[in-house]
Simulated scan of single mutants.
Amino acid sequence: MAVLVVIPARFASTRYPGKPLVELQGATGVRKTLIERSWAAAKEVRGVDRVVVATDDSRIKDASEAFGAEVVMTSSACRNGTERCAETLDALGGGYDIVVNLQGDAPLTPAWFIEDLVAALSDHPVAEVATPVLRCTGATLNGLLQDRREGRVGGTTAVFGADHNALYFSKEVIPFTAKTYAAEEETPVFHHVGVYAYRPSALAAYPRWDSGPLEQLEGLEQLRFLERGAHMLCVEVEAKGRQFWELNNPEDVPKIEQMLSEMGAP
């Protein structure tokens, strides 16, 4: 199957303006922008035919082309990364069986997360969209809860049925559990990893749908699919010892830099 990876990136982030161009220091002391580290993560994925950065900002375009990325300029009217991916696929003339949305704030995304996602969508012909979920350890869950207590969104959680069809996603920590978990203990909470694999038909339909109340309340683009009854598959992935975190707030920078250092990322 022909696979396209799109890295949507915009400068005018509400929570962190200019986020794609924030520099992150790796294990060797070298500083690279967030968009470059996200692009490097995409290039490590096996079975991908093409990787492009999609943006509406010339600063991101120039920075991306400087490190060798292919860039597709998209409209500033795109309301989220999924709409930007849809516009990108249209600009490229289609020709792909699966389109992956690797959001530009997730440079720690392991290659096998995306490989597992593409494989799952290939194996489930009824599924229109697939997205990875990672079971939280006690330490990760406590970090999410601490962020919420301090008024920050540290991540998104997901709940799904026995068939792994998505039921809901939230910036609150769901499902509720009153139990206290040890740092390495498995919990019933799943951290949603902000990566999506779409069939072209689902991606083409998405921008034509109005944003529903749940998407507007949570600010989560994937809820538009659920509100329209689309079949979204949650694919449980394994960390395999790798730490994972998204850059959502300025406070996340030192956390991600520490993770880059611990994994030996240059």
Rank of each mutant, 00 (worst) to 15 (best):
L4E: 10
R79K: 12
V100T: 14
A9T: 11
A91F: 07
R199A: 11
Y96I: 07
M1Y: 02
S75V: 15
R31S: 13
K61G: 08
V173A: 02
S58W: 05
L102C: 14
T156D: 01
V126W: 03
E70C: 13
S75Y: 13
G138S: 00
R50I: 11
E186T: 03
I35H: 05
V71M: 11
P200I: 08
W245K: 12
P20C: 02
V159G: 01
L233S: 00
S75N: 06
V53M: 06
P207D: 08
R37K: 08
A119R: 01
R15N: 05
L167H: 02
D62Q: 09
E185H: 05
L260M: 14
I256E: 12
A12P: 01
F11I: 04
A42V: 15
T137V: 07
A239L: 12
Q25T: 09
E218Y: 02
H164I: 00
V71T: 15
I7E: 09
G94K: 13
V235R: 13
R15V: 11
E221W: 05
R152D: 03
D56R: 14
E44T: 06
I114A: 07
V153E: 03
T131N: 03
V118I: 03
A41Q: 08
Y198Q: 07
T74S: 14
V129G: 01
P107D: 11
I7S: 15
G229E: 13
L121S: 03
